[in-house]
Design a protein around this nucleic acid. Structure first.
Lengths: 338, 338
DNA sequence: CCCTTACTTGCAAGCGTATGCAAGTTTGCC
DNA sequence: GGCAAACTTGCATACGCTTGCAAGTAAGGG
């Protein structure tokens, strides 16, 4: 019932004009006396400005579109929660679009996002084609890629230092005396997956070695399990596996321990990437590279807000440092610090 | 740039009036010839109707507000994903509000929801006070409580059969020959937590017994851990623990196994509630009660859509059957079927 | 063939707010 | 006290769309 209170109702009750009410609520100048009368009347009627009427005029809806592909990886729910809080502090709400990774589906979502004239877009775990990149730029909607980079110039992105993190893992495993090191990679269509692979290979190369096996796990438990079985089913199976993210690393550990009866880290060391909350649980106690979600989220929001305020701002690629977190799933070199 | 295409632009290009364009896109009657001209012009210009201008007139925004409190419990990300897909199929998008469980915070969110004039509200894992219930009813926005009931009449809700499920757990544990059965409960402020506790106690009472201990785990890992330590630190510790949800059950298992060196189910049987994906992982292999998320989501959407279409419809409390899923975390009675 | 009925289509009036403009009011300074 | 400058405030318009209404057109029946 009271959801139909308009600024005109408030104006009448307060004995002022509708524009006065508008000015009070939009922060424009108004005398103290007017402001007080308006506030009182608004409170009495339970008035709140209609965001959509406001959006029509100002062109700003106060809504950020969030496009997410994988929710089974617990990294993203955590990120969603933090993003929601951070954006709320900036006066924005989140319109969620879950999406598969098929180009047509992503395209239709982008269509909707432009239709809704969201003030900005954050994509998490979504692969953008260059075609879509162009369309976004053309639509003029600020966009930031979260935890995913983008080839070529074009869009802003916030990632952790995937290559440096993976390189550190390589050094760590080599220093731990592992002889046959393998990698269950992320998805090669994702920059994150590629960067981690490349950084890892580069780290091993520094030590004059190379992975004995690299198989794509597609960020999927089943695929990671299959990859594990495949790489262990050889004459000289790996004694250490670096996995492209924690979510797959849990599958790898489960497979090694419960399907193959092996010990982690006794027989095989396992290292993940992300440091999702579950990695600290004693059942896994996973050595992993910590992505500082909070800082990534803060940077994402900051970049997006800046781009909304200043549309011609050049896109930025922000990389947040990521550090190895030592736990019990991988043999630790003597005296390894940090 | 092309985000500023209006129906008037399309009308001019198609050589018809602006209202004709509107009618074609809003599904009202129009001749085949007109429709074709309009569609062609719209496609050429990349036109999409502005949802907010539309919302102002029709009063329907196509947006559902989702209020969620706990994202660390993996049950909710799964539900969010399914809700998003199901609502999309009905032509709705989700505006997400994450929220703590403090009344003031929930209140401010409800304020915003009414301001945004969402077409409907779904709350998941949020405790509504009667005060808020009234305000929602007063605002006239359809609302459905997901996985949470509500005392008294008032709002629609969709839950699983929490009491029946918990009762089944009680029978199962008794049949398994357990002598000292305890319960790490959910949060007593939530109907879900209360129903599971009551059903469990009723089930034990049928067998002429009662829980040796009941401690609130507040849906929190740390609290569940503390509860476990407390109930095990007695002269006659429990040999079976029913835990109010899976998320806490994992904490209980971790505590028993890795902190106390006990065997599950050797020393203590553990049973959870929800059947989140992780419950099936071999590291936990948790015996639990399955909440059929998909069916719960479908019912939620169905109820909400019906209430939007027919505002005077009486609120419904829908309960979906929940069945015990036998796995390895609890001693199984000989010949127990189902 | 004409009149009734059904269907299309354009016109114009809003939905609730922000904002340029002009008129009115206050303030400040000599 | 008078005049300019700064500030307030109301009027009216615009944002992009839906929809009642009336006029125009096609279809149908006697």
């Amino acid at each position: 019932m009271n959801s139909q209170v308009t600024s005109l109702d408030v104006a009448r009750l307060a004995g002022v004009s509708q524009s006065a009410v508008s000015r009070v609520f939009s922060g424009a100048s108004a005398s103290a006396a007017t402001a007080q009368k308006v506030r009182r009347a608004a409170a009495e009627l339970g008035y709140r400005p209609n965001p959509w009427a406001r959006a029509m005029i100002t062109g700003r809806s106060g809504i950020i579109g969030l496009v997410v592909a994988y929710f089974d990886n617990p990294f993203y729910p955590v990120a969603l929660e933090l993003l929601s809080r951070a954006l709320k502090a900036e006066g924005y709400r989140i319109l969620v679009f879950t999406v598969g990774n098929s180009p047509s589906e992503i395209e239709s979502v982008m269509d909707e996002l432009t239709a809704y004239r969201v003030d900005g877009i954050i994509t998490a775990s979504v692969a953008m084609t260059n075609d879509l990149t162009d369309r976004c730029a053309q639509a003029g909607i600020p966009i930031v890629l979260f935890n995913r980079g983008q080839d070529g110039v074009g869009l802003s992105s916030v990632t952790s230092a995937n290559d440096a993190g993976a390189r550190q893992v390589a050094r760590f495993l080599v220093a731990g005396g592992h002889q046959r090191i393998a990698h269950v990679a992320g998805w090669q269509q994702s920059s994150t997956g590629r960067d981690r692979l490349l950084g890892f290979e580069a780290g091993l190369a520094e030590a004059g070695t190379a992975p004995v096996a690299v198989i794509d796990g597609l960020y999927d438990r089943d695929a990671a399990r299959a990859a594990t079985l495949a790489m262990m089913d050889t004459a000289t199976p790996p004694d250490a596996i670096f996995v492209g993210n924690d979510h797959m690393a849990f599958a790898v550990m489960d497979t090694l321990r419960h399907e193959m009866g092996l010990s982690v880290p006794g027989d095989v060391s396992v290292v993940g990437f992300d440091d999702v909350p579950m990695a600290a649980w004693p059942a896994y106690d996973l050595t992993t590279v910590r992505q500082p979600v909070r800082r990534m989220v803060d940077s994402t929001v900051e970049t997006l807000v800046a781009q909304i305020a200043e549309p011609d701002r050049a896109p930025q690629s922000i990389r947040i440092d990521a550090a190895l977190v030592l736990r019990g799933s991988a043999r630790c070199p003597e005296g390894w610090t940090e």
